[in-house]
Amino acid sequence: MSWQPQFYVKPFVLSIFFGILADAQAQVSNKATSGDKEERVVWADPDHPEIDYSVTYAAELYSAGASFDGWWGTIRETSGIGSKENAVAINFSAFMNPDDPNAALLMALCSDRGLSFAYFPRQLDADEELSSEQTESSNAKEGRDATPKDATEWLVERSSGANRTVFVTINGGSNISQTWQINKAGNGVFIEGENAMEVMRHLYDANSLTLSLEIGSLNISSAFGISGADPAIKRLVDNCP
Rank of each mutant, 00 (worst) to 15 (best):
D125I: 11
N86M: 11
I75G: 00
G173N: 03
T169I: 10
W71R: 10
G188P: 01
Y119T: 01
Q123L: 13
Y57V: 07
K184Q: 09
I75E: 02
S67E: 12
T78P: 01
M96G: 15
P121Q: 03
F68L: 08
G143W: 03
S174W: 00
I182G: 11
Y119H: 08
A104P: 00
A58K: 13
T74R: 10
W180I: 02
R122M: 01
F117T: 04
V55R: 14
Y62V: 04
P49W: 07
Q178G: 10
I182M: 07
F167I: 06
T78H: 01
Y62K: 13
N163A: 02
S63D: 11
I170S: 04
L115H: 03
V189E: 00
S131P: 01
S159I: 07
E157F: 03
E60H: 08
E77F: 13
L105A: 02
W72M: 02
T56N: 10
A66H: 00
G172L: 06
E133T: 03
L155G: 06
D125G: 15
A66R: 00
N139W: 10
G173H: 05
R144W: 00
S79I: 05
V156I: 06
P101F: 00
D145G: 08
A104S: 08
N102I: 00
T78N: 02
L106K: 02
S132T: 06
E157N: 08
S93N: 05
A151H: 05
A146F: 15
A59G: 09
M96R: 12
N91R: 10
K84Y: 05
R158C: 05
V189P: 01
N86S: 15
D145A: 11
A89M: 05
D150Q: 07
E77M: 15
E192F: 06
D112F: 12
A58Y: 12
F95Q: 11
G82E: 06
S116G: 12
Q178E: 09
E133G: 03
S63F: 02
D69S: 14
V156N: 14
V55T: 11
W180Q: 06
D145I: 05
G114V: 01
T169R: 13
A59Y: 00
R76W: 04
A89R: 01
D47C: 10
S63T: 03
A151Y: 00
N102T: 14
E136V: 09
S67R: 15
R164I: 05
S54L: 02
F68Y: 13
F68S: 11
S83C: 07
A66N: 05
P121F: 01
A185H: 10
L130C: 09
I182R: 08
A118P: 04
K184V: 03
I182F: 12
G73Q: 00
